[in-house]
Amino acid sequence: MPYQSTLAAYSFKNQTIVVTGGGSGIGRCTAHEIAALGGHVILIGRRESKLINTANEIKQDGGKASFYSLDIRDEAAVTATIETLLKQHSRVHGLVNAAGGQYRASLADISKSGFEKVVQTNLIGGFLMSKTLFNAHFSHHGGAIVNITADNKNGMPGMGHSGAARAGVENLTQTAAWEWGPFGVRINAVAPGWVASSGLDTYPKAMQQAIRSLPHAVPLGRIASEAEISSVICFLLSKGANFITGQTLFVDGGASMGSAPALYPLSHKGNPNSETYNGFHRSITPDVLR
Rank of each mutant, 00 (worst) to 15 (best):
M1Y: 05
P2A: 05
Y3D: 02
Y3G: 00
Q4C: 02
L7C: 13
L7E: 11
A9T: 06
Y10T: 07
F12V: 11
F12S: 11
K13F: 04
Q15A: 04
V18I: 15
G21P: 14
G25A: 10
G25M: 04
C29R: 01
T30F: 07
H32R: 10
H32G: 04
I34N: 00
I34K: 03
A35W: 01
L37T: 03
H40W: 04
L43V: 12
E48G: 14
E48V: 09
E48I: 13
E48P: 09
S49P: 00
L51H: 03
T54W: 07
N56L: 13
N56Y: 01
E57Y: 01
E57S: 13
I58T: 01
I58W: 04
K59W: 04
G62M: 02
G63L: 07
K64V: 00
A65H: 00
A65E: 00
S66T: 14
S69K: 01
A76V: 12
A76L: 12
V78R: 13
A80W: 00
I82P: 00
E83Y: 05
L85Q: 02
K87F: 01
A98C: 15
A99P: 05
G100I: 08
A105M: 08
S106M: 14
A108Y: 09
D109C: 07
D109W: 10
S111H: 14
F115D: 07
F115C: 12
T121Y: 02
I124N: 12
G125S: 09
S130H: 12
K131W: 03
T132Q: 13
L133E: 04
A136L: 15
S139H: 06
S139D: 00
H140S: 15
H141W: 09
G143T: 08
V146Q: 02
N147H: 13
I148R: 10
N152A: 15
K153M: 05
M156K: 04
M156D: 07
G158H: 06
M159W: 02
M159A: 14
M159N: 11
A165C: 02
G168R: 04
E170C: 04
T175L: 06
A176R: 08
W178S: 03
E179H: 04
P182Q: 06
G184C: 12
G184M: 13
A189M: 10
A189Q: 10
W194T: 15
W194K: 03
V195H: 10
A196S: 10
A196E: 11
G199K: 07
L200H: 05
T202C: 00
T202R: 10
I211L: 14
R212L: 15
P215D: 08
P219V: 09
R222T: 15
A224K: 08
A224N: 14
E226T: 15
S230T: 10
S230Y: 05
V232I: 11
V232P: 01
C234Q: 09
C234G: 03
F235D: 08
G240K: 04
F243A: 09
F243L: 13
G246I: 08
V251C: 05
V251K: 06
G254A: 13
S256R: 10
S256K: 06
Y264Q: 03
L266C: 02
H268P: 00
H268R: 03
K269Q: 12
N271Y: 10
N273P: 00
S274I: 03
T276W: 01
N278F: 08
T285F: 02
